[in-house]
């Protein structure tokens, strides 16, 4: 590699962030290309190494409409709600820069036959890694299409062998205000917790994600392990998970604790049930000018609606 010496750098010459980010993507792609030349199996995304700007979306599409296009990597990884790293959408990418999500332990306990504490690598190893493209609908009425990489949540649950008493699954985010500066403010009760009914957690759509666009999850997206439940509002997708506990009572969830009348336990995407302060009938897809209609269960009714048969979705919002 040729390295050219340069004169001392004036402040006017410091690379603007956008270029620097592109450069990082370029280096990542160059790394993949390098791996390819040395005979290491080359993922499909590396064929884009020449362009290097936008990683290629990987995966099998689930529930996508004909006009659903994957949201650019740049937007997926810079427009984030992750209050552990600040409440602004642009804050997590900045404040999570130095976060190191390794080593990482995941504790599986509660009403299970096989409680255990795993190193992340051991936790993931037995499961098949899949790439799936899902729609993502935030409770704030914006949406994305995201190519996730991860494992089926059902797989993890089956391994843990929940007892007959287990009815719900509770997830907990890392609690570490030193590494997660947002936890020093009391904007939410920390640690962030979330929950699913056991049958929801066993639904084949429910996923534990470890990556986006075929790459490891960026810190601001919930590294190293996050929940993805595409028929629910985005905040149900708890990030940086350290604990999965099986319980017999409906668990708390962070947003339900913060504002129970606004954020229910189920939080299924539903265009007919408004948030008390705004309508959920439409959404703005990131990158699009006009709003589009929001679909029942975010377009996954076929796979999930039967779980809620007979329930009053206005009450169980």
């Amino acid at each position: 590699m040729l390295v050219r010496r340069t004169d001392p750098i004036g402040s006017s010459e410091i690379t603007p962030e956008a270029h620097y980010l592109n450069r990082r993507e370029f280096l990542a792609a160059a790394g993949l290309l390098g791996a390819g030349l040395t005979g290491v199996a080359l993922p499909a995304s590396a064929s884009a190494a020449g362009r290097a700007q936008e990683p290629k979306a990987l995966g099998k599409p689930y529930g996508l409409q004909s006009d659903d296009k994957p949201t650019p990597y740049k937007d997926v990884t810079s427009y984030n709600n992750f209050y552990e790293f600040g409440t602004g959408k642009d804050e997590p990418i900045e404040n999570a820069r130095g976060f190191v999500p390794r080593p990482w332990t995941v504790q599986v306990d509660g009403l299970v036959a096989k409680p255990a504490s795993y190193q992340l690598e051991d936790f993931l190893k037995p499961s098949a890694v899949e790439d799936r493209i899902y729609r993502h609908r935030c409770v704030e009425a914006w949406s994305m299409v995201i190519p996730w990489r991860g494992i089926a949540l059902a797989d993890v649950i089956k391994r843990a062998q929940p007892t007959a008493a287990a009815k719900f699954v509770e997830f907990t985010t890392l609690m570490d205000p030193k590494r997660m500066p947002g936890q020093r403010s009391n904007v939410l009760q920390w640690p962030y917790v979330e929950g699913l009914r056991l049958d929801e957690a066993l639904n084949p759509l429910a996923m534990l994600a470890t990556g986006v666009y075929g790459r490891d999850l960026p810190n601001q997206n919930g590294a190293p392990l996050r929940l993805v439940v595409p028929w629910k509002y985005g905040f149900k997708g708890i990030k940086s998970i350290v604990r999965i506990r099986f319980v017999d009572k409906m668990p708390n969830s962070a947003w339900n604790l913060a504002a129970p009348q606004e954020y229910g336990f189920y939080s299924n995407v539903n265009p007919d049930v408004d948030h008390p302060r705004w309508s959920q009938a439409k959404e703005r897809r990131i990158g699009e000018f006009s709003r589009r209609p929001t679909l029942m269960f975010n377009g996954y009714a076929e796979q999930v609606a039967s779980m809620y048969a007979g329930m009053d979705l206005r009450k169980n919002y």
Binding site: D75, D90, W142, R284, G287
Partner: peptide
């Protein structure tokens, strides 16, 4: 561009 981020209208 992204002067106002990913969701410029909001």
């Amino acid at each position: 561009t992204r002067f106002f981020g990913s969701n410029p209208i909001k």
